[in-house]
């Protein structure tokens, strides 16, 4: 899934990326390798902001990323990422790593023109559709279905209702 999403995100050096759901921190690290590679001057680096609602996971991801050498390229925030992370918006790319009932409006608002968002949308039952949301330069929103996926549920204000 990480391989598929990283291909579909069209990542470039220097991009500002929002990840909703840090999990272990691994996906964020693979993105940091593309948008802030060590063989590029630090002034050209992009940054990954990853929001994790479960405190214990956020702490664990932070530790993992520090040990693996990504502390200055990835920032972990322990908060409700279903609302995005307005403090560092707008973002070139947004990826959501949990299944949402719909595309949350705050995430659309926090996407830059020419931005791309990947988000699994569907019910809490096993399968969802991976949706690619693109915002054109003049702000028009387009959604395409990239196929069936299986993610854990998104929680928080714009998450699943149980």
């Amino acid at each position: 899934m990480v391989a598929i999403m990283n291909e579909a995100l069209q990542l470039e050096v220097g991009q500002r990326v929002l990840e909703v759901g840090a999990g272990s921190g691994w996906h964020a690290a693979t993105i940091a390798e593309i948008i802030a590679p060590l063989d590029t001057p630090r002034s050209e680096w992009g940054h990954v902001y990853t929001v994790e609602i479960v405190k214990a996971l956020a702490d664990n991801a932070k530790k993992n990323l520090m040990i693996a050498g990504y502390a200055d390229r990835v920032t972990i925030i322990n908060a409700d990422g279903s609302k995005g992370y307005d403090e560092k918006a707008p973002y070139d790319r947004i990826l959501v790593t949990a299944a949402a009932p719909d595309v949350p409006n705050p995430l659309i608002d926090q996407l830059k023109p020419d931005g791309i968002m990947l988000i699994p949308v569907g019910s809490v039952s096993l399968f969802q559709s991976l949706i690619r949301v693109t915002k054109s330069a003049d702000g028009k929103i387009r959604q395409e279905n990239l196929g069936g996926v299986a993610f854990v549920p998104l929680t928080g204000e714009y998450g699943q209702r149980f």
Binding site: V2, I4, G23, W26, H27, V54, N60, F127, V149
Partner: peptide, 18 residues
Amino acid sequence: PIGFGQTISAPHSRSVKL
């Protein structure tokens, strides 16, 4: 599993069933 009821994604596989 990575604990706390969560999982780490597969490198690729969407799910075995798909």
